[in-house]
Design a protein around this nucleic acid. Structure first.
Length: 561
RNA sequence: UGGGGCGUCGCCAAGCGGUAAGGCACCGGGUUUUGAUCCCGGCAUUCGUAGGUUCGAAUCCUGCCGCCCCAGCCA
């Protein structure tokens, strides 16, 4: 009974329109897309947008989508990242066929293309230092000037490039540059570096290469080699498209994929860049890449988000070209609507206060019946032990409640969900702390299950757990990581200044109904009236489960109104 | 002040010359053994702005304004 909103009709976004047109006109017989992560960090919800787009297009148009690691910078990349990326893509529900691809698999071919570029007089070995190259490049408003090495002979260039490849030069001493136009208003076209010397071990090719190709040169050719039809990337690459096209045109490749750019995802109350996420991890502001407060795929998974909810989220936000920042409430809405349908209900008291039922027999344990889902009888029922002493939520009792507070208070009657109707008798306050210590009630023996025998109206229904038969649990109450909508808005204030100090509050004295011991790690559950939770995969121990709060239930109760 | 983009409701977003979809948020009301869910209803005379073309413009043209990206041997 999973709600399938993923296939509902929705107007095609501009990219899907282009692809549909290309298919309709016969320009392409099928679409081939690719998701090209660099293995230098963990995937986050922004990547999920790209994954859902690229793999989604493949599914919708009967095409294919490659998973290709853009591993051209060994100094930043690592095998551990490729493993996590594969796991995350798979978890999101996508497959990439036989095996994943790597730009590093094309190193030899890429090298040969570079030789071809040199032979065509379109690339040269430059000996300017990095600083000099920057200087020669000019500025946004001033044109650049030609490198003194620009007009070397093809033979010299070939010899020098071979020497670079053979490790005869030091890092930084030589680069291979495309010979385009130092006067171009587009900085990317001012003889961009396409190969640099790097004496770093590559996680796949080890020490086979001393030179590594740059992104702009590698990406278009990798796309071409894989016969990608539509190469989808984010807005900041718009200025790179002329270079993408130049390389393929100059090399007269048989296939020329079309690069199309879309806006990257921004979410309120969080940051998205890998650099910033890495900083939070390194400085222990969070407990690792998979901290449940992180918007990484692994963090969301640990938090209790489902793959379907993330896919739905990506679908509802759409694809466009304007810079945008999506409200966190949209993401929360997706996980709530998934879990509302799919998560079973249980009871748990997060801030317990004891309630004694005066007229209930001592030492009696009575089993009452709880529905696992209020709207879905197929999810079955479970027995709940009811006893004379129980725990209720501290919030559910008020000494002097406002009129519209319909929970327990002097003179009031409430329903203990699935249990009995109870009537307030008295309560004890700790003289030192002023906290309510114990509440006494009487119950209506005719109201078992919570049904009023005379149909009298009982407005309030609260949750409870037996004081004798229960399981103590810890709950991590997670909240948004930052306390401002856009932590990066003010360039003069470090984004870490906006960290929400209460983003993780650990409640160690929670009491759950006995059945929670049957829950498996990662399984989503709703604790009635509190929110959605799941058992944490790393902090839980066999004798004490630790729950993560995925998201609260919507709460429209406003006190004093 | 160079180049590339973008501006439709509080946040996203359809709209492709014929008279402003949808989602989230928000506000009412109903049902309810979760103040949840569910259900009904409300929510842009107006599309950054000023002109122009047209019987008719968010859609076409022109000028202005605002925001984002680019000067890595990162991707």
């Amino acid at each position: 009974m999973e709600k399938n909103t993923e296939t509902e009709n929705k107007p095609l976004d501009f990219i899907r329109q282009i692809i549909a047109d290309d298919l309709a006109t016969g320009k392409h017989r099928k679409s081939i897309t690719r998701f090209p992560p660099e293995p230098n960090g963990y995937l986050h919800i922004g990547h999920a947008k790209s994954i859902c787009l690229n793999f989604g297009v493949a599914e919708e148009f009967g095409g294919t989508c490659n998973l290709r690691f853009d591993d051209t910078n060994p100094s930043k990349e690592d095998i551990s990242y490729v493993e996590s990326i594969k796991e995350d893509v798979r978890w999101l529900g996508f497959n990439w066929g036989e095996k994943e691809l790597y730009a590093s698999d094309y190193f030899q071919t890429l090298y040969e293309f570079a030789v071809s570029l040199i032979k065509r007089g379109k690339a040269y070995v430059c000996e300017l230092s990095p600083d000099e190259i920057r200087e020669y490049r000019g500025t946004l408003t001033a044109p650049g000037k030609n490198s003194p090495y620009r007009d070397r002979s093809v033979a010299d260039n070939l010899k020098l490039f071979t020497a670079m490849k053979n490790g005869e030069f030091t890092e930084g001493s030589h680069v291979l540059r495309a010979k385009i136009d130092m006067n171009s208003p587009n900085l990317n076209m001012r003889d961009p570096v396409i190969y640099r010397i790097l004496y770093a071990d590559h996680h796949r090719t080890k020490d086979a290469w001393k030179i590594y190709p740059m992104y702009d040169y590698t990406h278009c050719l990798s796309d071409m080699l894989e016969k990608i039809t539509h190469s989808l990337c984010t807005l900041e690459f718009q200025d790179h498209r002329p270079l993408y096209d130049w390389v393929l045109d100059t090399l007269e490749t048989p296939c020329h994929p079309r690069q199309i750019e879309f806006a990257r995802l921004n979410l309120s109350y969080t940051v998205m860049s890998k650099r910033k996420l890495l900083r939070m991890v390194d400085n222990d502001h969070v407990d690792g890449w998979d901290d449940p407060r992180m918007l990484t795929i692994s963090g969301l998974r640990r938090r209790g988000y489902t793959p379907g909810s993330i896919r739905n989220f990506c679908r509802t936000i759409g694809i466009g070209k304007s810079d945008s920042r999506i409200d966190m409430a949209v993401l929360e809405n997706e996980i709530r609507s998934d879990l509302n349908v799919n998560a079973e209900r249980r009871m748990c008291v997060q801030d317990p206060v004891k309630l004694v039922i005066d007229n209930y027999p001592e030492n009696q344990v009575e089993m009452v019946e709880g529905k696992n889902h209020p709207q879905d009888p197929d999810k079955g029922i479970r027995p709940l032990p009811f006893t004379r002493e129980i725990f209720i939520e501290r919030d559910d009792f008020m000494d002097d409640p406002p009129k519209k507070y319909f929970r327990l208070g002097p003179g009031r009657e409430v329903r203990l969900k699935y249990g009995y109707l109870v009537q307030y008798l008295s309560h004890k306050v700790n003289p030192e702390t002023g906290e309510v210590e114990e509440i006494r009630c009487t119950y209506d023996p005719e109201s078992k299950g919570g049904f009023a025998p005379d149909n009298r109206k009982v407005k309030g229904t609260i949750h409870w757990v037996s004081a004798e038969k229960n399981v103590p649990v810890t709950i991590n109450m997670y909240d948004r990581l930052f306390n401002v909508e856009d932590p990066e808005a003010d360039k003069d204030v470090d984004f870490l200044e906006h960290l929400n100090p209460e983003s993780k509050v650990v409640l160690k004295n929670c009491i759950a109904e006995p059945d929670v011991v049957n829950l498996s790690v990662g399984q989503n559950v709703q604790f009635e009236r509190l929110g959605y939770f799941c058992i944490d995969s790393v902090e839980s121990t066999t004798d004490k489960p630790v729950f993560n709060r995925t998201v609260t239930l919507k709460d429209s109760w406003t006190p004093n109104k």
